[in-house]
Design a protein around this nucleic acid. Sequence first.
RNA 1: GGGCGCUUAGCUCAGUUGGUUCAGAGCAUUUGGUUUACACCCAAAGGGUCGGGGGUUCGAAUCCCUCAGCGCCCACCA
Length: 876
Amino acid sequence: MSIPTKFVPKAVEDKWYRYWLENDYFKSTPDKRMPYTIVIPPPNVTGVLHMGHMLNNSLQDILIRRARMQGFNACWVPGTDHASIATEAKVVEKLKTDGISKNDLTREDFLKHAWEWTNEYGGVILEQLKKIGCSCDWDRTKFTLDSEMSKSVINVFIDLYNRGLIYKGYRMVNWDPQAQTTLSDEEVIYQEKSGNLYYLSYKIEGHDESLIIATTRPETILGDTAICINPKDDRYKHLHGKNAIVPIVERSIPIILDEYVDIEFGTGCLKVTPAHDPNDKSLGEKHKLDFIDVLNPDGTLNSFGLHYEGQDRFIVRKSIVKEMESLGCFVKKENHLSKVGLSERTNAIIEPRISEQWFLKMKSIAKPALEAVLETNEIQLIPKKFKKTYRHWMENITDWNISRQLWWGHRIPVYYYGKDNDDFVVAESIEKALELARVKSKNLNISISDLRQDDDVLDTWFSSWLWPISVFDGINKPNNEEINYYYPTQDLVTGPDILFFWVARMIMAGYTFRDKLPFSKVYLTGIVRDQKGQKMSKQLGNSPDALGLIEEYGADAVRVGLMLSSVAGNDLLFDENLCKQGKNFANKIWNAYRLIDGWKIDSKIDQPIASKDAIICFDNTFNKALETINDYFEKYKISDALMTIYKLLWDDFCSWLLEVMKPDYGSSIDKVSIDQIKHQFQKILKLLHPFMPFISEEIWHIIKQRNISDSLVISSWPVFEKYDKIVLKNYENVKLIVGAVRNFRKENNLRQRELLSLFYSNSKTIEFSEIISRLAQLDKVVFSDENNQVKGGVFRIGTNEFFIPLDRKIDSKNELNRINNELNHLEGFLNSILNKLSNSQFVKNAPNAVINLERKKASDTKEKIKNLKSRLKNIK
RNA sequence: GGGCGCUUAGCUCAGUUGGUUCAGAGCAUUUGGUUUACACCCAAAGGGUCGGGGGUUCGAAUCCCUCAGCGCCCACCA
């Protein structure tokens, strides 16, 4: 036999992927069918495939492949995200290794480098997705910086501005003094660091008395504009309404009252520096304090720093303490553990800094998005537990800071024409801006050279929140055929970590720009962790090489490995052993095919009854499994669906069906049987296809029969047919009997192939006895009520008693033990039932069905006990 | 600090509205097997007071309270 005993994935994966592409099986265009659409969560354009992507995209592929087989017009739109911050940082770093500093480049030059980088590395990840079998419509590939996509973003900005939802405001941002840029909150890593807490005294105006504040950042003293105390703090009641004097600058500042101050912490007196601390900023706004910024962008003090101007903030921290000492204002210092924000990129200590940013008002657009998930259930989150998190965020939503001080991204379409803060217009092009500026300023002399576009770009999410709409160009051409057909999409598969950043905002965008939901189901995967429960990351180096895994185990196996452990919303502890399990499974499938393929067919042989019965049993089993699998899919229990298929193939198909139908060595199989087996196998391959597309397609093509469509990928999902519960019950019984005979052999050290006979009593017929004979190596399975006369072994299944004559000493000790154990168990069980039934409360309160059930249990158990006891007597 | 969630077999997890023998699955482990598809195999076995305590109920893994441990999100103490 030339077929290898082990499945070799490499040999088939590329072949079939190419074949699918060549035949345009993944392509979708609007037609009469119902659409089933998924938009991919666009990975970073310069990213490389990691385990999270594998999980995510395998799931999407499973959903889309099944939908395709179900007859939907399946459309999976792929693409990549420009990922402003991450990409810009990478480019900056790369330039640095080439000896180029970003600060030395013009915006245009920098963007040229960035595009070069993007064109070189961009899309690598999409190629990697193909390796795991993703059936995206690649002709639709989008990039968030494509001109069409850009236009959508700009149009949306203009639209929102015109609706009065976008405004300019001041906000405290994370400033990286080393890179001289703002960072998003996500790029700030908080670390516990031990530092000092300095106690310093401030004079009270018009008094001899002082008050003592505690601070970790003495260098910001020069920016103090108030002292804050808790109004309930009895120690300081006498200070209400007074002023204090900031040492060194000798500035008089008010003593304000706010419950924000923790009486317990430090001295209960807080110095307020609104320009350098987010909390102080809100105090400053609330109490209308002055904002004094004492820092330059590079982290040195500015002119407000007086004689410290030009010195680094950390040097000033030390010297200012010394100066305070000499002034007699220093009281003491304590060790203090505090969290310090560090830049993820440069490791520099972040300075909170107030700057001008663009904001989007969220309250009004959040409303329909909140209702859709919590009230109408138009959009479902899977699992449901995320609804609460979603609500919490949406109800407390704050305005969205959409500007970033970066170059790589969609530049904010705001053009300034004058010196005033309000001298700007919002327009899609500079020409248009000129027109508007002339109108707004009533100055026709303004020319293009007078216009200056805002330097900032938009937050990356400000483009990705449009993704389900913009990939179909639904912003620019709101009535085009594609958007009307594909939108709203069906399922979105993504991680819970971007529920707010992305999912919630897409929902808001959907209702804001199309008045419709963007998708109806959101499947939130877990985060892939290693076995210690740590998040997989490059820094930790605990992330397995995704492509390496495919290389080692095969794409199908890796997909199975991931799916076996992935319950929606639960983090999964990734274990390479799961891939091994997937590989073993692939091999099992492969060998099932090898077995079938190796049989000689003889069309003159009649089909044995056992084979005919086995097919009946399997067919019913299949339909029951199909019902379960479909139900699991409905509930997005993908791993359960896979496990059901796994067991269907491994246990029911291989261990039972094939074992029954396998012709004896050297014999041939009849035509009917082989056709039926292939038919059943093909149905399983269909179920398998979404999970294991490559191996299923490979085997499909080898065993396919003439009247069957070309490719599995476009074949139809099996249609559920009603199954016969009685058949299944009898089949279960068969399995129990076979198992019992096998046990009997084992206990008595009988050889596998030694023929035995089986007699049974208490039941006139045993269904599918031919199957039992074949699998348990019996010459007959017959009814007899006289089996007790002969020597042999006995076992019981349900109420039926079985007897195997054996002309040889059998080990009755085992049997005695077993019967006694069972008797004990049954008697205890019976007792508990009888207790229950004699409990008047139970009889009074429990529903009739439950009571009847208990009665039936009691009588069944009594019967069993009676049988066992008579058995016991006979053995003795 | 605020909010949410979790705790079931050695591991990863199922367990619908409380009610059949409901305590489950896969993997792992142990034992036994195989000249006739697959040792990436076959057949079987062991293994859990459902985190602790209390309550509601005729009846609790399931509902309530409480304690302990773990995790996530948000806001962060000068």
